[in-house]
Design a binder for these strands. Sequence first.
DNA 1: TTTCTATTGAATTTTTTTTTCATTCTATTA
DNA 2: TAATAGAATGAAAAAAAAATTCAATAGAAA
Lengths: 142, 142
Amino acid sequence: MDMDDQSPKMRLTAQRQIILEELGKVTSHPTANEVYDMVRKRLPRIGLGTVYRNLELMAETGLILKLEVGGTQKRFDATTNLHYHVRCSECGRVDDIELPVQSKLDRLAAKACDYQILGHHIEFSGICPDCARATAKQISIN
Amino acid sequence: MDMDDQSPKMRLTAQRQIILEELGKVTSHPTANEVYDMVRKRLPRIGLGTVYRNLELMAETGLILKLEVGGTQKRFDATTNLHYHVRCSECGRVDDIELPVQSKLDRLAAKACDYQILGHHIEFSGICPDCARATAKQISIN
DNA sequence: TTTCTATTGAATTTTTTTTTCATTCTATTA
DNA sequence: TAATAGAATGAAAAAAAAATTCAATAGAAA
């Protein structure tokens, strides 16, 4: 019999499990390299290629979320339910933002263009508390 | 006398002018490499570094817009007034979308997190007309 | 156990972006 | 006009980020 569309068999290897665990531990949205550093503390011999490969794979199967937000590097998120992000324009840090998903935007967009709209993502930009504090300090020194 | 905050003197060289012109000609949002290819038809000896350098510079001064949307590469836009984008999840093409800017989102976001919100960007994802047509053809062949 | 396939680490390659530097260009001053 | 100083350039190299290759390994299935 032919199996359905699902990928053949994706094993939950130690590497994958630990990548997933480490990603779940943080609320920041680490880059592949940052995940590599986190995972390496527990699996010192893991290769960077493996991390890239698995993050990509897990994003494809929907296990995690791949964020292609501002900045040069892709970032990853263990929370897969739809939500928005804030990005600090100073330091690049990315956080989740608790805002109800504006699904009406999709309907508006569908009317406004000839694409078949699948969804949307909102990225807010701003100054994170840490950078705001740093700037305030900066000013008071001058 | 000391001059004000503006950058010293930014010359409008032939290279810059042509980059700007070529970018203005298209409604797509070309990557640096695509701009390079466009510009090279008129300035065959221009270097890729010059294109990158100037796109980055012009984005900094606000002459053009740098989009860090989905996909691996940065894209550039000659239209600088705030607007949203749709990105084809099949081919990566990016188009503008005519949708009023939802400035209330910034106020909601400000309440929902401890960042100092500066603004936001919405990226819709969908299937562009071309890819939709290609998919339809694909299906009818099977 | 044996076989088959997915996965890995290590290294390499590719892709994208940035930087370096000697040279050229241009605006301004003398 | 010629000299000068700073900005900008092309060409090449380097750096950064991501993807791929491949022999070796590990696990599941037979």
